[in-house]
């Protein structure tokens, strides 16, 4: 069975996890245009290669971020949202730019 390392709970069978979709920057719902909001809600990159994704450990309802290669289906690393935000602020991780850190960290 495949296994995935949850940043909170450690290595667990993949059956304990739920895929949460691509990790995208949420635009400000008040200030963004309709087109930006539609893009955020309905469209996906469906990129072949390294992507950043939301995953949830169902048993603890813990949401975290994984970097995965969609061609080889290899999980490169998993991290808490706080760690991911710290990385992205330092320019190490793809898929982020202006995300409001506190908005996401509150999902922990």
């Amino acid at each position: 069975m495949k296994q995935l390392k949850c940043p909170l709970n450690g290595l667990r069978n993949i059956t304990e996890f739920t895929y949460g979709g691509e990790f995208h920057v949420q635009p400000d719902p008040v200030e963004c245009t309709k087109e930006e909001w539609v893009e955020y809600i309905f469209f996906h990159d469906n990129h072949a290669g390294e992507v950043v994704e939301w995953w949830c450990h169902s048993a603890s309802s813990y949401w975290f971020v994984a970097r995965r290669n969609t061609i080889t289906d290899t999980v490169i690393e998993t991290m808490s949202v706080a760690d991911h935000m710290a990385d992205s602020t330092a320019g190490h991780a793809p898929g982020n730019n202006t995300l409001k850190a506190q908005q996401v960290i509150n999902r922990d």
Binding site: N9, R12, N13, T15, E16, H57, S58, A59, S60, Y62
Partner: peptide
């Protein structure tokens, strides 16, 4: 451990 027991959370 927060996990699956008998396939239940």
């Amino acid at each position: 451990a927060q996990t699956s027991v008998a396939r239940l959370n």
